[in-house]
Amino acid sequence: MKKYIPEWLYLPNMKPSDQIMWAIIAVEFVIGILLWQNQTFELLPKPLEVMAAFPKLLKQDLIYHLMVSFMLFLEALGIATLFSLFFAYFSRFSVGYPIATGVGLLRFLGMTGLTYLFQVTLGGGYILKLSMLVFGITVFYTVGMVSVVHDIPEEEFDHARTLKMGEWHVLYEVVILGTLDKAIDLLRQNSAMGWMMLTMVEGLVRSDGGIGTLLLNNDKHFDMASVYAIQLCILATGILIQFIIDLLQRAICRWEVRL
């Protein structure tokens, strides 16, 4: 019997061809949609109901809200990246390590008290949303990058030193340039974290709009079809962000290409 069933169907660690892999994805996607279509939970709208909500959302300026969120997210991601990389590279200094580790530990803090702190020190509105997002991304990104820059094998530092490099040059060559690919990889992971936080942060200040605001407004009116349509938009934008960072990584990290 087994000889009629392809091994990739029942054995782990198999590598089917690209065509078969795409076929698997397509079949599983269709099964997912069918399960969704045929589910019996009354509160969960079916796919066609969700699709039908899009024209209504477009009238509610869906694109505008999405752009507002996207721009806020990009700004936060840029600032958080600068902060995180600074803390990570600073951790190679004896005086910087405790600070960078401390920043990473702040990820265990709840947001509730911090909202007030940021509002008092930095201001409300857009700045509050931005600072909350920057904080959220930075604490996680810093943890990952500190780990990366401290996992560099000692031999790599020695290699640079045997080429007459001073410690600042070693920092640039081995730490900054040497971990660039991993920094971009962590950027991708933490961008997902930031994008996930966005709706929560936008709920704090709704006057500027944003996809989070639109989501909460529709949730308030219990329009579940619209809520799930917005969630689909958030998901699609998140995937798009990941795709863009992938492209960025491929463009920059040409050394990863193997013959």
């Binding site: 790599e156 020695d158 040497g178």
Partner: peptide, 27 residues
């Protein structure tokens, strides 16, 4: 002092983010 004696490590460490020419030029 460091830099006076060349070292070739067991795993042949190079600057992976640089091309071969760049690796040699930086040296």
């Amino acid at each position: 002092e460091r830099g006076m004696v060349g070292v070739v490590a067991q795993n042949y460490i190079l600057f992976d983010k640089r091309t071969i020419l760049s690796n040699l030029m930086i040296a």
